[in-house]
């Protein structure tokens, strides 16, 4: 039996938890104040549909296709505000508070000491070497963005995408193949 199938119940659980996380954020409170509201909700079905439209011949698209193979959902919400102070750090904190250990590991947490600075956080849900989800929170003076990627991400595939789509170069520990 393929070992991959042993992860399936875990992946479904991760998918459900990931969606739950995004739904728990009180967007209704924040969204009316925004002048621009970007919302991307791609569940497993839509990702599969998108994958069919990704060319295996174009190198970048082929890498994306490989990356999204085991992803159960990508949920993005980005709010742009007309002026600073339209959302509070308490709002950001309420989002962060849902990403607690041991389920979530804080990979990056940059908080500006001065008010109105950029804050960024990257959180990962892992199971051994397997990444089961990533949440990126970027709190800029006039912009609040939360990205939630649900499902199994192969670090190798993630590394292949670095430098593309504005994704920075990712230095991950290479898998040792025996």
């Amino acid at each position: 039996m393929n070992n991959r199938y042993l992860y399936l119940p875990l992946l479904f659980a991760a998918g459900a938890l990931g969606q739950e996380f995004h739904q728990q954020i009180n967007w209704d409170k924040l969204a009316p104040k925004a002048i621009e509201n970007v919302e991307v909700n791609l569940d497993g079905n839509l990702l599969q549909m998108a994958a069919k439209f990704l060319s295996g011949q174009k190198p970048d698209e082929a890498k994306v296709k490989k990356l999204i193979g085991d992803i159960k959902g990508i949920y993005v919400r980005s709010l742009t505000f007309a002026k600073e102070g339209e959302y509070s750090m308490a709002d950001v904190e309420s989002i962060r508070s849902q990403l607690k250990a041991p389920a979530w590991s804080k990979i990056v947490d940059v908080r500006s000491a001065k008010p109105g600075g950029d804050n960024a956080g990257v959180y990962m849900k892992t199971d051994g070497n397997q990444i089961l989800g990533i949440v990126v929170i970027a709190a800029e003076p006039k912009e609040l963005t939360v990205v939630n990627i649900v499902g199994a991400l192969d670090p190798e595939n993630l590394r292949e995408l670095s430098g593309k789509f504005g994704i920075p170069k990712i230095e991950l520990e290479k898998k040792t193949k025996k």
Binding site: L42, A50, F165
Partner: peptide
Amino acid sequence: QLMLALEITG
């Protein structure tokens, strides 16, 4: 939408 999501994430 997937490309947009990747751009934002990136």
